[in-house]
């Protein structure tokens, strides 16, 4: 076997090893973006333990614990609503009533425990701005 062939063989083996390494544990790293109603009603159809949900913070449902470190609120997406609990000292700057948020975490007994709370930033931000409201009224 020529050296060139050997080298190509090494590259292929390396490639296969990398792919194998990626796929070995891939399923457990997958975080599906699901709808609230699917999560609540068809919970058994998912293999994964972690999920992402998107929706809006229902007006007036934000509630902080006494030490202000844990926040809970209702996340609404269309007609579906799910209670979300999140513990962190650094709540994103754009988190407020009606804000569009994405939460990531696990679902247990009807409550979504989010370890990651993200606010939809740039686009939302433009919509809410006072300038756009000026042009909308015109």
């Amino acid at each position: 076997m020529s050296f060139r062939k050997k080298f190509i063989l090494v590259v292929i083996v390396f490639g296969l090893l990398t792919v194998a390494w990626i796929s070995m544990d891939f399923k457990s790293q997958e975080v599906p973006f699901v709808s609230v109603s699917d999560l609540v009603n068809n919970n058994e159809m998912f293999r994964q333990d972690r999920f992402r949900l998107g929706g809006n913070v229902q007006e007036g449902t934000i509630h902080y614990s006494d030490d202000k470190l844990t926040v809970d609120f209702l996340l609404e997406q269309g007609d579906s609503i799910i209670p979300v609990e999140h513990t962190s000292a650094a709540i994103p700057d754009l988190f407020k009533d009606g804000a569009q948020v994405i939460v990531e975490g696990s679902y247990k007994d009807g409550i979504f425990y989010a370890d990651n709370l993200m606010t939809k930033c740039a686009s939302r931000y433009e919509e809410e701005s006072k300038y756009t409201s000026v042009s909308e009224t015109n």
Binding site: T18, W21, I22, Q29, V31, P32, F33, R52, E104
Partner: peptide, 18 residues
Amino acid sequence: GTKITVGSPYFNRVMIPL
């Protein structure tokens, strides 16, 4: 039809050994 994300665990798992 379902959007599935992979975050830091995936990247770290592969990128650190490489």
